[in-house]
């Protein structure tokens, strides 16, 4: 089955300039992304992962290189989610989730109904009119994801979306989020530090070297697990092979 190509990144390079230094953060990063893929990027801290996502989201200009979106809809809509949920404490959950639609002038009754339905579906129905500080970390993260999904993006960019959560919540929320994203048939590029998370969520893992970030290797993940849950996937016989391989690739390049 040949999936449609949705994004081509070629030779992406980015340097940061400050008054007395120049930092080469990303060098010659190239990747093809197909519809429905769940790409997870792993790499040592400071290797330029967040930089890559910022550039893909359009918030940052690359120094050189090209990004081509193969999209029927223009402009292609991108959902960008950061490490912290950044729910606004002065807005209710519903109003927080509506933020993107509001900014894009699409806060119609119809879209609002859709958002409310989604909030209900993902267990936040009782909290529509609550303020963020009344929610648990996991619930907040789910609300942040729904806020990102509300604008109906073609591609989702997730920058360590679970790192603010404790282990238990993290497992539950990542499970939720994978199932949400599967149901909504989204293309995802995610960054994580957690190899377990990477292998159990991804359809493809991209390993990046230390700064300046270059691709060391990519792994198409195929797990013959019983079920689809995170824990079941972690029990698949291939899981440890992937884990060891990726771990070694990262380890070798730490020096």
């Amino acid at each position: 089955m040949m999936k449609r190509k949705i994004l081509t990144i070629s030779n992406l390079t980015k340097s940061y300039h400050t008054k007395n230094s120049e930092t080469l953060a990303v060098k010659d990063f190239s990747l093809n992304i197909h519809e429905g893929e769940f790409i997870v990027i792993v790499g040592p801290s400071g290797c330029g992962k967040s930089t890559i996502l910022s550039i893909l989201s359009g918030l940052l200009e690359p120094s050189s290189g090209e990004i081509i979106y193969h999209s029927q809809t223009y402009p292609l809509s991108i959902g960008y989610m950061q490490q912290n949920d950044h729910l606004f404490p002065w807005r209710t959950i519903l109003k927080n989730v509506m933020l993107g639609l509001e900014i894009q002038g699409r806060a119609t009754q119809e879209n609002m109904d859709k958002v409310i339905k989604q909030l209900k579906m993902y267990g936040l129905g009782k909290f529509l009119n609550s303020y963020p500080n009344q929610l648990s970390g996991g619930m907040r993260q789910r609300a942040a994801l729904i806020r990102t999904l509300a604008i109906n993006p073609d591609i989702l960019l997730l920058d360590e979306p679970f790192s603010a959560l404790d282990y238990q919540t993290r497992l539950a929320v990542s499970e939720d989020i994978v199932s949400i994203l599967k149901k909504e048939k989204k293309t995802v590029i995610m960054i994580t530090h957690d190899l377990n998370e990477a292998i159990s969520m991804a359809s493809k893992v991209v390993v990046i070297s230390k700064r300046p970030g270059k691709i060391i290797d990519t792994h198409d993940i195929r797990l013959s697990s019983e079920g689809d849950s995170m824990l079941q996937k972690r029990e698949a016989p291939e899981f440890m092979d992937y884990y060891n391989k990726i771990w070694k690739e990262l380890d070798v390049h730490v020096e």
Binding site: S57, G58, L59, I78, G79, Y80, Q82, H86, L99, G100, I103, Q104, I151
Partner: peptide, 8 residues
Amino acid sequence: ILVKSFGA
């Protein structure tokens, strides 16, 4: 950055 990513 969040609102910018929505095109604010």
